[in-house]
C-alpha cells in the first residue's frame, strides 16, 4: 500500500534521519535465501526494501546487478515467484514497506493490471520500473492507483526541469532520484551536484526524495542522507551477499546494513 510507504518516510522524518532503502534481487544468491535476506535487511535497519524482479536484459544496471539478474533468471525466478517471496516474508513478519523493482517486459508478460493486483494482494507496496517513464506508463499507473500500490517514478541528472512537474505528479509516495548519469554500481565518489539536483526536484514536490546509484560506504550514506529523505543502496548489498559462503549471506548483509546506517560501530 502506498500508505505504508508514506508512513515510513513520515516516521524517519520525525526521527530526524533519512530512510535507508535496501535492494536485493529475488532469487539471488538462490531462491531459498531471498525471504531470510528480506528479514535480515529489516533487522539490520533497512526502512524500505526494494525487491528486484529478474530480467534477462537489465540495460540500466552495472556488472554487479547484471550478474544477480543472470543468476536469478537461470534459477527460473519469475514475477509470480517474486510475489510468493513477498507473501512469505510478510507471513514471517516483515513489516517494512516493500517496492518491486525491475523492467517492463516481465510485468507486461504477466499483465500490467494483474501484476498490480497480485502485488497488492501479496503485500507489496509499490513498483519501480526502470524502463517505464511516466509518458509510457498510463495503463500501469492506473492499475497501480486502483490497487493502491505506489508507482515510483525516477528523475535523473539529465532530466529537464520542464519534465519534473510531469514526473513528480506521477508519484504518490516518494521520488527515486538517480545520482549519476550511468548504470547502477558502487563508485568511489559521488558527484557534488546531488544536493543541487535534490533542491531542484524539491521545487516541484513535497514528497520525499530518495537518492540511489553509486552509494555504498557509510560516509556516502551519511552524505546523501544529509540532502535527501532516503538513501538507496543496491550493488553494495549484492556484493555483501557474494562476499563469502551462501550460508553466511544473511548475516553479512545484516551487519553491512547495521554498519552503514550507523546502528553498529564501524569495524572497517
Amino acid at each position: 500500500m502506498s500508505k505504508r510507504l508514506r508512513a515510513r518516510f513520515a516516521q524517519t522524518k520525525r526521527e530526524g534521519r533519512a530512510a535507508f532503502v535496501a535492494y536485493v534481487m529475488a532469487g539471488f544468491p538462490d531462491p531459498d535465501h531471498t525471504v531470510p535476506l528480506l528479514l535480515g535487511l529489516e533487522e539490520g535497519g533497512a526502512d524500505v526494501i526494494e525487491l528486484g524482479i529478474p530480467f534477462t536484459d537489465p540495460l540500466a544496471d552495472g556488472a554487479t546487478i547484471q550478474h544477480a539478474n543472470e543468476v536469478a533468471v537461470s534459477a527460473g525466478i519469475t514475477f509470480a515467484d517474486c510475489l510468493e517471496m513477498v507473501q512469505e516474508a510478510r507471513a514471517q513478519g516483515l513489516s517494512a514497506p516493500l517496492v518491486l523493482m525491475g523492467y517492463e517486459n516481465p510485468l507486461l508478460a504477466y499483465g500490467e493490471k494483474q501484476a498490480a493486483a497480485d502485488a497488492a494482494a501479496a503485500g507489496a507496496d509499490g513498483f519501480i520500473v526502470v524502463d517505464l517513464p511516466p509518458d509510457e506508463a498510463s495503463t500501469f499507473r492506473q492499475a497501480c492507483e486502483e490497487q493502491d500500490v505506489s508507482f515510483v517514478p525516477l528523475i535523473a541528472p539529465t532530466t529537464a526541469e520542464k519534465r519534473m512537474k510531469t514526473i513528480t505528479s506521477a508519484a504518490n509516495s516518494f521520488i527515486y532520484c538517480v545520482s549519476v548519469t550511468g548504470t547502477t554500481g558502487q563508485r568511489a565518489e559521488l558527484p557534488p551536484s546531488i544536493g543541487e539536483l535534490v533542491t531542484t526536484i524539491r521545487r516541484y514536490t513535497e514528497l520525499p526524495i530518495a537518492v540511489g546509484f553509486g552509494v555504498s560506504t557509510r560516509d556516502q550514506v551519511a552524505e546523501v542522507g544529509s540532502v535527501a529523505e532516503g538513501v538507496i543502496v543496491g550493488s553494495a548489498i549484492i556484493s555483501a551477499i557474494e562476499a563469502g559462503t551462501v550460508d553466511g549471506c544473511v548475516e553479512r548483509v545484516r551487519s553491512y546494513v547495521e554498519r552503514v546506517t550507523g546502528r553498529s560501530v564501524d569495524k572497517s
Binding site: P133, E136, I155, A156, A160, V178, T181
Partner: peptide, 9 residues
C-alpha cells in the same frame, strides 16, 4: 520510448 529516465532528454 521505453527508456531509463536518464536517456529521455
Amino acid at each position: 520510448r521505453y527508456i531509463p529516465e536518464v536517456l529521455v532528454a
